[in-house]
């Protein structure tokens, strides 16, 4: 199987993730879209590492996993805080700031 196909897959996953962030209402789902985008980038990194025969792409993938975990900690804390206040995690409901 050609290695390039993994790149197409990565691009498709990235596009799905980006669409999710922009279209879904729930903050949690939107956040999952971001995670999908990060993992798509990981797939691209690993594929390129394989193509180049270079290890740094794989190392980056590990770094990204750690960063994503840290981001989940912060993100979920914020989403939970706002959910407890408003009993809703919909991004359409957070509309007090405008002007």
């Amino acid at each position: 199987m050609e290695v390039g196909n993994y790149l197409y897959l990565a691009m498709i996953l990235f596009a799905i993730g980006a669409t999710t962030v922009m279209l879904r209402r729930s903050a949690i789902i939107a956040f999952m879209g971001v995670e999908l985008m990060l993992n798509a980038a990981n797939l691209a990194f690993v594929t390129f590492a394989r193509i180049h025969g270079d290890l740094s792409g794989q190392v980056i993938a590990f770094f990204v996993m750690v960063v994503a975990a840290a981001e989940v900690v912060v993100g979920l804390a914020i989403i939970v805080a706002i959910f407890r206040t408003r009993k809703s995690a919909s991004v359409d409901d957070v509309n007090l700031l405008k002007g």
């Binding site: 903050a27 956040f31 985008m37 990060l38 798509a40 980038a41 912060v74 957070v94 007090l96 700031l97």
Partner: peptide, 19 residues
């Protein structure tokens, strides 16, 4: 609300940076 907006959009943009 500011925090949530900043976080979601910030995470979105760092995903772009990563790609």
């Amino acid at each position: 609300e500011a925090s949530l907006k900043y976080f979601l959009l910030g995470a979105f943009s760092s995903a772009f940076f990563l790609m």
